[in-house]
């Protein structure tokens, strides 16, 4: 497929359907882009797995590092690659040994390897290149608009309120507010008459 541009529907379908995401090249340093993306996606409910052979024994925002894709004990929906283009082919080769196969291989902003993409696609894996899932999630949800970024989306539809389906408003901490003494007295007097 054409990898110069992607439709919003293609990206939206991927971000809506994947649950488990293995990040190859995840960095424990909290100023690195991979750390930003890992944390952001974890906060949005994705089951994130950091892969970095140099960090095994440590964890990233509470998730233990693993050394390679093959050491993950559960099916992976998406592999997010934070390595430069020359390291992508071996990662795709590794991914093709997995059972079940991952549904998506995503190469970060600035990373493109058409040969590796063709190989993955031949096995039925969807590929995204030179994009960031954090930016795409933020763009399609309009969150990124808070930073003045052109989300390239228009909609007259109201987004679901953040509390929909939850009882957050009941559980918010609060203190006593102003009284309604007059109404209370009126109610009392009314009772007296009855």
């Amino acid at each position: 497929m054409n990898h110069d541009s992607y439709s919003d529907d293609y990206i939206r379908e991927i971000l809506n359907s994947v649950k488990t995401v293995a990040m190859v090249g995840a960095s424990p340093q909290n100023v690195r882009p991979s750390y930003f993306v890992f944390k952001y996606l974890a906060e949005r409910g994705y089951d994130m797995i950091p892969i970095n052979p140099g960090q095994v024994g440590k964890s990233l925002v509470g998730k233990p590092f693993v050394a390679s894709l093959r050491e993950i004990d559960r099916p992976i929906d998406m592999i997010d690659v934070f390595r430069s283009a020359e390291f992508v082919m071996p990662i795709v080769d590794d991914a093709l040994t997995l059972n079940p196969l991952p549904k998506v291989i995503w190469l970060q902003l600035g990373v493109r390897n058409d040969e590796a993409a063709t190989k993955a696609e031949a096995a039925g894996i969807k590929v995204v290149m030179n994009r960031c899932p954090k930016i795409e999630y933020g763009r399609l949800s309009s969150e990124i608009s808070w930073m003045g970024v052109n989300s390239r989306t228009l909609s007259s539809k109201r987004a679901p309120p953040p509390t929909m389906g939850m009882r957050l408003s009941l559980n918010r901490g609060s203190i006593g507010g102003g009284g309604t003494d007059a109404a209370d007295r009126a109610a009392k007097n009314k009772n007296d008459i009855v």
């Binding site: 909290n30 750390y35 930003f36 944390k39 952001y40 906060e43 933020g138 969150e143 990124i144 608009s145 808070w146 930073m147 003045g148 970024v149 052109n150 989300s151």
Partner: peptide, 21 residues
């Protein structure tokens, strides 16, 4: 800068960000 969101109107504001976009 790890999350998108509003802190203080000197940096971002939801009315101003509509204008920016």
């Amino acid at each position: 800068l790890q999350s998108f969101g509003n802190i203080y109107t000197r940096i971002t504001n939801p009315t101003t960000s509509v204008l920016e976009e």
